[in-house]
Write a protein that binds this DNA or RNA. Structure first.
Lengths: 227, 227
DNA sequence: CTGACGACGATTGTATTCAATCGAGGTGGG
DNA sequence: CCCACCTCGATTGAATACAATCGTCGTCAG
């Protein structure tokens, strides 16, 4: 087992429950916990420096989000996403995100707009430095903030789930497209700033479509890289 | 069959964790636990005849699904859905379900088709007997099976979440529309059986649109019945 | 040699117990 | 009389301990 999301809690100062859940999800997305691998409660507890109880709670939440699957007395395993499911994720995303962007153009707060601009600049910097995993996280954040700016909690929740799963599937992927992707992000922010829902919808739709075709073009096997 | 959500576990034979989660969710949907009310772990444990630990795990899952909200040391409360959120649920549903129905027309298995027909007949029977809460559950199940028949786990998961939330908002609602609704369900099944994705999409789109307009027409206050 | 049966180890599920934190009510001072 | 502070009860968060269940290996009959 490699060590990446290892005992960051250190000696003292326990990790909060929410932080624990995020940490495990991050590690699943980053591939620390491989698809199909079994997550025994005790090893997880040892890894994150807590007891089994908070681990169980975090894993229940992750199960509800669809990252792991558990069956009674059979343990918890990381789900394996196949090509078809990756396609489905993008298809649903192509439906939901334009809706969210259109509403965001009408309802966004100045704070949210500022946050978007901040994310864009962080994204550009990450491209410069070649920090690809950071880029994936920023990308997720960007789309989550757009969804949150739509003012629809439903949309926000669903897009957030999708966004994280998509980051998982794409994982270490498409560094070439990063340039175009973040240029499109700037266009999205512009449309949202102008308050033009039609433009926002259209730009986001183009953005998602480009991501889909890029994924399809180089789709050999998404998450089946079992070594 | 079970009553309100009381200690159905009885003397011996504990309830399984999944069953516990479903039971709590059912009770939230049925209004046993009112929106805004606080769910203390101990009272929940006593009510369902288990200890605090499984209760906590179930509530974590329900939190991920968006039925309850918890903040550290502040306890867990049932979320309150307002008019705007009810609208959002229906709007997102109007996007997702036609997609699912179109794919279901192409990919459904005979077993799933049979299950749909069974649900339709159960729905008719429930209308006859006037069992409205049963009807709400059957309605959710119907849409969940359609989504499952689409072959997309992503779609299935999201539609299931939406369906349950919608059942919650509608709760004891629209008995007049039940007739039309289940007639439309029959049309949906027919389109799915014929394997006509275009027709399935169109019928489902009409079905959702009708539900939306019906809800709007009689929407005074959905879940704000705080006593 | 092969198949099924049974006991062991490992892991999950649950309960009990203890520590940490938040809110409410009372008390003293201004 | 009002406000700030503080103590205390209640509740959540976590850890340990125990019970229930499953997978696996060894054994034995056929």
């Amino acid at each position: 087992m490699e060590r990446a999301g290892a005992p960051q809690a250190g000696p003292r100062g326990r990790i909060s429950p929410q932080a624990l859940c995020r940490a495990i999800r991050e590690d699943v997305i980053r591939g620390v916990h491989r698809p199909g691998s079994r997550l025994t409660e005790e090893s997880m507890a040892a890894r994150y420096g807590v007891s089994r109880v908070p681990v169980r709670e975090a894993l229940r939440a992750l199960e509800a989000e669809g990252f792991v699957r558990s069956r009674p007395y059979a343990g918890i395993v990381v789900v394996e996403l196949d090509d078809a499911e990756a396609e489905d994720l993008l298809e649903v995303r192509a439906l939901l995100e334009p809706l969210g962007a259109g509403r965001a153009a009408l309802r966004r707060t100045p704070e949210q707009l500022g946050r978007l601009k901040e994310l864009v600049s962080l994204g550009r910097a990450a491209i410069e430095d070649g920090r690809l995993d950071e880029l994936a996280r920023l990308n997720s954040r960007f789309h989550e903030v757009i969804a949150a700016a739509s003012g629809s909690r439903t949309l926000s929740r669903l897009v957030t789930q999708l966004s994280q799963k998509i980051a998982w599937v794409y994982s270490v992927d498409l560094p070439r497209r990063a340039q175009d992707s973040w240029r499109e992000h700037e266009e999205i922010v512009a449309a949202v700033e102008q308050g033009d829902p039609e433009a926002a919808r259209a730009v986001v739709a183009r953005h998602i479509a480009a991501a889909r075709s890029a994924y399809r073009r180089r789709a050999p096997g998404p998450a089946d890289d079992r070594s």
